[in-house]
């Protein structure tokens, strides 16, 4: 990313590009485990959406559809809070990939 010269910056330390942090892929922080969504078990309670600190639960219309691994940090809260008897989100081992490869 090309960085602006001082003349190109907006006057007064302002960032006008609202919400552009979506370009930061926090999924690159995951190390060793990731959640796996098992749709058949899901009762669509949306707790995983609510409690995910990294905005990584994919919602399509009124349904949870899975995990956005671009942002998922693998914290595991969604899995712990998933209320189904047989969890609709389980944590699985993940091969640790290189940062560069994930950031693509």
């Amino acid at each position: 990313m090309k960085k602006e010269s001082w003349k190109e910056l907006t006057l007064g330390t302002i960032n006008l590009d609202a919400g552009n942090s979506v370009k930061n892929l926090t999924g690159t922080w995951r190390s060793g485990k990731k959640p796996q969504f098992i749709e058949e078990r899901c009762i669509q309670c949306f707790f995983c959406w609510l409690y995910c600190p990294h905005f990584a639960i994919e919602v399509d219309g009124d349904k949870v559809r899975g995990i956005n691994y671009d942002y998922c940090t693998g914290c595991g809260i969604c899995s712990v809070e998933c209320p189904t008897k047989e969890k609709a989100i389980v944590m699985v081992k993940e091969e640790v990939k290189l940062f560069e490869e994930r950031a693509k």
Binding site: G12, T13, I14, N15, L16, A18, G19
Partner: peptide, 9 residues
């Protein structure tokens, strides 16, 4: 306009 004013550098 939704702006972020006074961010951290």
């Amino acid at each position: 306009v939704k702006m972020t004013v006074g961010p951290i550098d």
